[in-house]
Simulated assay, not measured.
Amino acid sequence: MMLDRILMYQGKKQVFGTQASSLLREDGSWVIWPVENPESVDTRRKEAGFTNSVTESADSMDAIYNPEEALPKNE
């Protein structure tokens, strides 16, 4: 989780999909920060000991998970 948080603060994609933010969308809705290789994120989560999928985690945070979510543009 700490790795994901550090990557998020650096403006990079996270590994396990543990971090959410309200800064990605203009409406302020909470979304899972973009994830590197989203097609295998749940496998990585399971290997690391997480007991739920990124979608289940998003639901528990009342956040949206979109595997296509883009990183914010540097302005």
Rank of each mutant, 00 (worst) to 15 (best):
D62I: 07
A48Y: 09
E47I: 05
I64M: 11
K73M: 05
E68K: 12
L71E: 10
V54L: 08
S53D: 00
I64C: 13
A48E: 12
A48I: 03
A63F: 06
D62G: 10
T55Y: 03
T55F: 02
A48H: 10
T43D: 04
A70G: 15
E69N: 09
S60H: 10
K73E: 08
I64E: 08
L71D: 01
A70Y: 08
I64K: 15
N66Q: 11
T51H: 08
S60A: 13
V54C: 12
I64F: 07
E69F: 11
D42A: 03
P72W: 01
N52R: 12
R45P: 00
D59F: 02
V35R: 10
S53N: 12
N66Y: 01
R44D: 00
M61Q: 15
R44G: 01
A63C: 12
E36F: 02
N66S: 10
S60K: 15
E56D: 12
K73I: 06
T43C: 11
A58K: 14
S60G: 12
P67S: 08
D62F: 08
K46P: 01
P38Y: 04
A70D: 07
R45N: 03
F50A: 07
E39C: 04
E69K: 14
N66C: 05
R45F: 02
N37D: 05
N52V: 15
S60Q: 11
G49Q: 05
P34D: 00
P67V: 01
D59V: 09
A70P: 09
S53I: 03
G49Y: 03
M61Y: 09
I64R: 12
R45Y: 00
S40Q: 13
F50N: 13
E68P: 04
Y65M: 12
S40W: 04
P72A: 05
